[in-house]
Amino acid sequence: MANVISDETIEYVGILAKLELSDAEKEEAKSDMGRMLDYIDKLNELDTTGVEPMSHVFPVQNVFREDVVTNGDDSENMLKNAPAERDNMYEVPKTVE
């Protein structure tokens, strides 16, 4: 494996993803990520100088909707997807920035 993921990196990625990993899981994730980066390095072997990055494969542009209300109140169905519900709202673990 050419790419070695440091302890600091795995710690930081964990914070960004809001994941708490055990030491064993961290080791596993480090090795997985290292292998993923090795694979990306393979792609980097190709010389792409002067090639515009492509974000869409289809030659389609300007797909719009008119500004007209088409959706009504479907909150009863929508809230069936909620882990927990109260007062027509989604109840989640307390999150304060």
Binding site: V63, R65, D67, V68, N71, D74, M78, M89
Partner: peptide
């Protein structure tokens, strides 16, 4: 196509797109 009107009861102006349901697709308002 959900309304942007103010003051509606919670979650009455929502659909799979604006609640991020898997498989829903956004279409841009011109």
């Amino acid at each position: 196509g959900c309304s942007t009107a103010f003051g509606g009861e919670a979650n009455t102006h929502t659909c799979p797109v604006c609640t991020g349901m898997p498989g829903s697709l956004p279409v841009l308002n011109k």
